[in-house]
Design a protein around this nucleic acid. Sequence first.
DNA 1: TTGCTAAGCGGACAGGTGTCCGCTAGGTTC
DNA 2: GAACCTAGCGGACACCTGTCCGCTTAGCAA
Lengths: 202, 202
Amino acid sequence: MRRKRDAQAEAETRKDAPLRSDAQRNRERILEVALAELTRSADAPLSAIAKKAGVGQGTFYRNFPNREALVLEVYRYEVQQVADTAAQLLATRAPDRALREWMDRLAQYAMAKAGLADAMRRATCSRGSLAGLGHAPLTSAITLLLAANEEAGTVRPGVTPDDFLLAIAGLWQIDPHSDWQARAARLLDLVMDGLRAGARQR
Amino acid sequence: MRRKRDAQAEAETRKDAPLRSDAQRNRERILEVALAELTRSADAPLSAIAKKAGVGQGTFYRNFPNREALVLEVYRYEVQQVADTAAQLLATRAPDRALREWMDRLAQYAMAKAGLADAMRRATCSRGSLAGLGHAPLTSAITLLLAANEEAGTVRPGVTPDDFLLAIAGLWQIDPHSDWQARAARLLDLVMDGLRAGARQR
DNA sequence: TTGCTAAGCGGACAGGTGTCCGCTAGGTTC
DNA sequence: GAACCTAGCGGACACCTGTCCGCTTAGCAA
């Protein structure tokens, strides 16, 4: 086996392990069930998801150490899409309008997918900063938008994705019921103004 | 008894019930123990606190329906003090400097008292908006600061305490370990700039 | 005092999260 | 195919939160 491993690919020795076939199947079944259950009720018991997926608690928690890991993974595809929107928006609009519209979409998405905001919040804060796991796409989208705006002189220089995520943290606190639209708009307006302050262009 | 109640005070019929003596004692013992335990470890089990206080689960949860209710109450005195600072700062500084310094103190306090930021976060977000329970003092402090600044023309008109709390929500996400100072400062600078934008004075 | 009454007590219990560990079976080698 | 060996399984378990409900007792009236 040692020889086989060596031959195959040194790179995969540590991460992205090849995963045994049954493990792969289990993981996918869990995600499948989780999408259904979480859509139905954002705080569906993890144990119920495990049971419906036909796996033990141990298996479940080995794949997803906690709730937000699961949620982030379940919605990964969708999050990826939101992130991708950044580039499209930048191509068709002025940088500052693109940034603002992207934030609106992010808000809309976070409100739509119950439980996602929660996961985002936890992931954003808990460990250090944005060291989050499924954050990479979001972070790069933000970097893209900020860079474009900085260059256009519509956002003060030196704003990091971390700054940005902290600034919009209020989003994850808004209750998806009630009139989140108004509250989110006011928050995002304020953040935009904050970002603009100190920019070359005024 | 009915007659006695009527005679005593109609106002207290609903809220601020007079509380039976043993109830009073229990509540105080719980708070006492909670302060000690929470200082030691922010996520001390509530059940342990109840036990150390010598009360049953039921008694405990009747007094404090959940963790943040307890934390908010434990730190109420301290929170009150922070809130009070607002007036003092306004008396000795320009409104905008007072606002900024107050935010700094709030941040410092939130970072110092482990577990408080958590409670603030939950209280801020979960139910509706700032409908929070122990928020009243903070809210009025914020109102005070915003009004002074609006009048001085150093903050755009029409900002509500709710807006403000959402804007600084990032604070509660910062990890009290690591270098919170830098991250908080950057966030608060950004928020201040956002608040300033659109003000009369520039 | 004595008796009454409901406010308050407190422990058992239901339900959820996350961990641990002995066993199973997938993949590989011969 | 047989044998091995370990990645992965899965359920029992430990611990926590929050609820429920029969019992206790503080406070009042006579």
